[in-house]
């Protein structure tokens, strides 16, 4: 079955994401409990939000007794990049991706899932995205639960080696594409420079905003300097 193959393709693409999530959410679980949340609450946050920076900020607001309006506003701002990614994904969807599927799959738009879904050449199917989302979410929730429950029981050498897995996956996506395409190389180098610059000179800017700034600046500059020929673009999927 084609659907089944797509689903397992998504699961496979999601394995490194899940491994990376495991370690990041593990750290989140520990810090959430330190901030006074229960193990169940921390896991419920991970299940319902599936986002790193937003959750950390959210726990801060809960711990400091902030207002609900503040909570909503902060989540909107930090997660604004997902709106951008949603628009990008919407441009190359398979025709089987109907509105109900989009309503469900939207839950799983994260930086990493966006990445594996958007760099494929063929139009995105619900089955592929569900596969990637399911395994990633499983990793995210498991890590949170274990982190919240068992605290710092895992040996340091293991957690620190796990911490880099997700970035290794990013490198696996960026480098081969940059090798073949000067525009991609340029966009990546510029994004790296802007990102380092933000961290260095404007550490107050949240990581979510830094991603937005880099994404817009680097992709606009690359689009202006390295316009692609029309033929190589998607005409697929209607």
């Amino acid at each position: 079955m084609k659907k089944r193959r797509e689903f397992f393709g998504g699961v496979l693409a999601g394995v490194p994401i899940a491994l990376g999530y495991l370690s990041v959410s593990f750290a989140f679980g520990i810090s959430a409990v330190r901030a006074g949340l229960s193990c169940l609450e921390a896991s419920a946050i991970s299940l319902s939000c599936l986002t790193s920076a937003g959750q950390v900020a959210g726990v801060d607001i809960i711990a400091s007794g902030g207002t609900l309006l503040e909570m909503a506003a902060v989540q909107f701002t930090i997660n604004l990049r997902y709106a951008l990614m949603g628009i990008s994904l919407s441009q190359n969807l398979h025709k089987s991706f109907t509105l109900p599927h989009r309503l469900i799959a939207a839950y799983g738009i994260t930086d990493e899932i966006f990445a594996v879904c958007s760099v494929r050449e063929q139009p995105l199917t619900p089955a592929f995205m569900y596969g990637a989302v399911m395994i990633s979410t499983a990793g995210w929730i498991t890590g949170t639960f274990v982190g919240a429950f068992a605290g710092s029981a895992l040996p340091e050498a293991v957690t620190s080696a796990l911490g880099i897995v997700i970035y290794g996956m990013f490198i696996a996506i960026i480098v081969p594409a940059a090798k073949k395409n000067a525009g991609v190389l340029f966009a990546a180098l510029l994004a790296a420079a802007v990102s380092v610059g933000c961290r260095h000179f404007a550490p107050k800017i949240s990581s979510g905003f830094t991603v937005i700034i880099c994404a817009l600046a680097a992709s606009a500059a690359a689009a202006a300097l390295f316009p692609r020929a029309d033929e190589e673009e998607q005409v697929s999927g209607e």
Binding site: A187, L190, V196
Partner: peptide, 23 residues
Amino acid sequence: RFIRNMLYYMPYAVLTAMTIPSI
């Protein structure tokens, strides 16, 4: 065409920004 080009380059910009310097 400009926006479509931007959207093509965007995932790579996003990924790099998340990787560097955080890695």
